[in-house]
Design a protein around this nucleic acid. Sequence first.
RNA 1: GCCAAGGUGGCAGAGUCUGGUCAGACGCAGCGGCCUGCAGAGCCGCCCGACGCCGGUUCAAAUCCGGCCCUUGGCUCCA
Length: 491
Amino acid sequence: MSLVVTDTLSDERVEFTADGDVTLYVCGLTVSDDPHLGHARLWFHADVVHRWLDHLGYDVRHVENVTDVNEKITARVGERDGWTTERDVAETFTANTFEAMRGLNLKRAEVYPRVTEHVPEIVDLVERLVEAGYAYESNGSVYFDVTAFDDYGKLSNQDVEELEAQGEPDERAEKRHPADFALWKADGVSETAAREHAKHDHGDATPTGETWDSPWGEGRPGWHVECSAMSTTHLGDTLDVHMGGRDLVFPHHENEIAQSTAATGEAFVRHWLHVGLLAMDGEKMSSSIGNFWTVPDALAELGVNVIRTFYAGAGYRSEQALTEETIAEAKERWDRLSRSYERAVDALDSVDTRSKATDETLRRAVADAREGFEAAMNDDFNLREATAALLELTDAVNRHVDAEPPHDYRGLHDAVAAFEELGGDVIGLQFGAATDGDVELAGELVELVLDVREAERAAGNYERADELRDALDAVGVEVEDGPEGVEYRFG
RNA sequence: GCCAAGGUGGCAGAGUCUGGUCAGACGCAGCGGCCUGCAGAGCCGCCCGACGCCGGUUCAAAUCCGGCCCUUGGCUCCA
């Protein structure tokens, strides 16, 4: 069975093709603020694409850019102590972003290229475009001539003649066609732009940002060239997969196609994959709207597993709704998976390995889960169906564990392996949380409390026993009375 | 205004390319039962006639065609 993906350019479901190596480029983010769950949704889906291609045996070369040159970054200079240059601000948020990514259990990309480290490559690309007749210099700035590139508008189905003017008034005056876009901007950040994005008053010291020397004088890279320059530098002229948010289709990705194709003469991207937006109460989550939930806050409140289960609840292409209800659902789904996993592991520990017991229903369920998972993932990364396959396995596992021993050693073993390989390696869920010293100590303390509670229960003093259970629950310890005694888990 | 993605049960979410096997699966919420001192978890069962609207094509339409309405996104930085 082969992988089928939906390509934005052709707007068709196509069979995924690549040789042994796959190049994956993801439009990362502008490091002008802390990352939120909307950004993380893209990261998650890119991560799962990476993991699934790994699973299929490809060697994935994954590059994710970091835009550290931007007027929004410049506008924050001076906002805090230590933020005296554009680079200072960018460094703070780059570090925060990497930390958030680690917290989300994302596989590392091979390279996280930064604009500040690729200005020579950018200048070189712009020069090639000028020489080839696709770009022109005007007042020290350089613009891409959209009329020179026949396929301009093909990705987003735009008609060049219909396009409205892009850019500020003074920029528009320098352009031949309103849809032309900047490859290189003369001088630093303009005062108007800096003011527009500023959240605080700079007084007279309006920051202008860093500038670099170029054949056209001092200036800054345009907004779209960086991705063309950096992706080509690290992954070559043609990318197998290019991912990004749906809001980047136009103009960002449209412009990337124009720049790269015009410069190299090669097809730029084989498969365009666009991730739908995350809607918070019906509206796009966005820094500028202010309805965002930062990744660190969400990690603290929900934990990585609930967040990843949440993302796995919808396909990458659809818009996904973030509400109290959908978060609660994700929590329940994760609890169900992890509880069943833990029960299988516990049962496995206590099973008599000499036992020849087999449970065909369980074994059949494991095989079905693997088959269903594979089919769902190969169907354009249908994560909700894939997760459903695992949730169906929980049913068979729970029934088996609930039943009288002897248990099926191999059946349980295979079930645990399925959870770990599919839910763990592919979806990135972390089953069986690591036990460190603190957790062990906490466990011992919980057991002390439970001993007291058992004594109260034995004495028929249920009121007091329930108080203890409620108290444990209040600090995040779930207590469950089962046929084999009391069990607890950290919720 | 132009471009795009959508509108399927209380929520969430497949199916639309390739018309019939379709109105799915998983889950959440809700209801009942088993189990339990109670609760939770787990298991079993139930509910949920939902394909935006109006036409058309067809033996047959969620699926194709036309028109309309609505939502979200893009056209300025945006994952």
